[in-house]
Design a binder for these strands. Structure first.
Lengths: 211, 211
DNA sequence: GCCGAAGGTGAGCGCTCGCTTAGAGTGCCC
DNA sequence: GGGCACTCTAAGCGAGCGCTCACCTTCGGC
């Protein structure tokens, strides 16, 4: 069973299990291209080229360019949800679990920035059905974080007036890491995760953790 | 002279002064289209159509589609910087000024969401020169917020270890409002601004303001 | 050693893109 | 009232897009 610690920089990509090999290579190529240029600015020729294949080969494994994005988004959201669920179910106080949830979620957004960027920012390029499916996953993501905050409020650990609004702000803060994080910058994913966990505990009015 | 209060929902758009009339209509049309679909998914025919003109008319007022984005980004960043500067120069403690900066900045990102969305999320579509110009403005935005936080630390009002990281997080939180804010949602820009100001004061360890 | 399935390619179709051009309409200056 | 600058349009160019099609290669099963 995986621990949230897996989400640090060295994590294996979530599409390790995608088969056949060519389909996975195309998926990885698409993630890189979408992250660099955005979905609409990426051509199917570019994706196929990065995977070392001809433009036509893409259509053996995926019906459309949009299906590629849909698959990436689905797998990525599943992974993000898994990270939060793992953190939410660990032993400890609500304070401990919120810190673990934020730090592991942020580590993933920083360490797997290319993936996270596509997952979090290209949602609008999906068609109505695919978008509805992904939005359902997002509501579950929201629910996990809100659950921890509600428990902290109930136990008296947290001092939060607007639980929904605060949940939104916490998730927004974490997600936006995928926009600005720079792999060549001064901070490691672990450092940002630790900083953000501290900031979020302050936001919910939790007592300072033992150092 | 304008006060930060101008940034609430009823604010006039920053391109009021753009002339001639047709150039302004095209700019407004481009903002709406870029915000809805993204820069790359928007066609010049769509922009011209929204402005009630033929596709060719666009090129009388703008050399390229990218120039339109550049102009929007420039005007929008100038406005964002103006909001923060106004807040930073108001009378009062660092706590007061940080609260004012965050609430007015957030009000703008929520109330002028279409504009803010283009300004904050379509930067990568600009060419190298235009992007460099805009990035310089972003550094000034960063500097305004960092300045307030540094002053609060110096005066003992704030308890912040990592000033740069916290500045980044505060700005990130505010900017991401443009991604998720929904005009038809349950919160008004003023409400989100107030909530976020409170959350940010907690993040920097400021004493609770008098209610 | 032949066969069918699976996975690949080169060529290219139909379309839409950003942008250009030739020319028409309009109003202002002298 | 003639010339000119400005604004706009209809038509369309060349390029590149997502995607398809006819055909080729590889390989396990018998």
């Amino acid at each position: 069973m995986s621990t949230a610690q897996d989400t640090a920089g060295g994590e294996t990509e979530p599409w390790e299990g995608v088969t056949p090999d060519a389909a996975r290579r195309l998926l990885v190529a698409a993630v890189e291209a979408f992250a660099e240029r955005g979905y609409h600015a990426t051509t199917t020729r570019d994706i196929a080229g990065r995977a070392g294949m001809s433009p036509a080969a893409l259509y053996i494994h995926y019906k459309t360019k949009e299906e590629l994005l849909h698959r990436i988004s689905r797998i990525g959201h599943d992974r993000a949800l898994d990270i939060l669920r793992t953190a939410a179910r660990t032993e400890g106080s609500a304070t401990d679990r919120l810190a673990e949830a934020v730090s592991s979620f942020v580590r993933w957004h920083a360490g797997r920035r290319t993936t996270a960027r596509v997952v979090q920012y290209e949602l609008d390029a999906l068609g109505p059905e695919a978008r509805a499916e992904i939005l359902a996953l997002r509501r579950q993501v929201d629910g996990e974080v809100r659950g921890i905050i509600e428990e902290g409020v109930a136990s008296g650990e947290f001092d939060v007036i607007d639980v929904h609004g605060t949940t939104l702000a916490v998730l927004s803060l974490c997600i936006d890491v995928a926009r600005w994080f720079n792999v060549d910058g001064p901070r490691t994913p672990d450092e940002v995760g630790a900083l953000y966990a501290d900031l979020v505990l302050r936001m919910v009015g939790a007592a300072k953790q033992a150092d």
